[in-house]
Amino acid sequence: MEVGTDWYLVLSAILFSIGAVGLLIRRNPLVMFMCVELMLNAVNVSFVAMGAELNDVSGQVAVFFVLVVAAVEVVVGLALVVAVNRRRQRATADDISVLRG
């Protein structure tokens, strides 16, 4: 059985869904960041697979930009979690609820 581009796209869709669902149901900000990372890397799989299918380099190049942006997001996200944790010992998304309407 040959593994074609479709397989990679399906894999990417599954990974993206796992990330999206995880972000919605998990309550720990750190795990939520991991889910965002999973979503971004799922997109990377799509980009690479499509780039290979189209025989076009811009798909692979896009991945580098996405990787850099993902790294930057983690830096900012972890800094925010540290800042929140300084104020309060436990930090789950449910404890962070001063703001509500």
């Binding site: 999206a20 972000l23 900000p29 939520m32 960041f33 965002v36 979503m39 997001e73 900012v76 996200g77 925010l80 979690v81 800042a83 929140v84 104020r87 998304a93 962070i96 609820s97 001063v98 703001l99």
Partner: peptide, 13 residues
């Protein structure tokens, strides 16, 4: 802090 964290998570999403 809370608004920053919320904005960040939803923004990244």
């Amino acid at each position: 802090l809370e608004s920053g964290l919320k904005y960040f998570i939803l923004g990244a999403f």
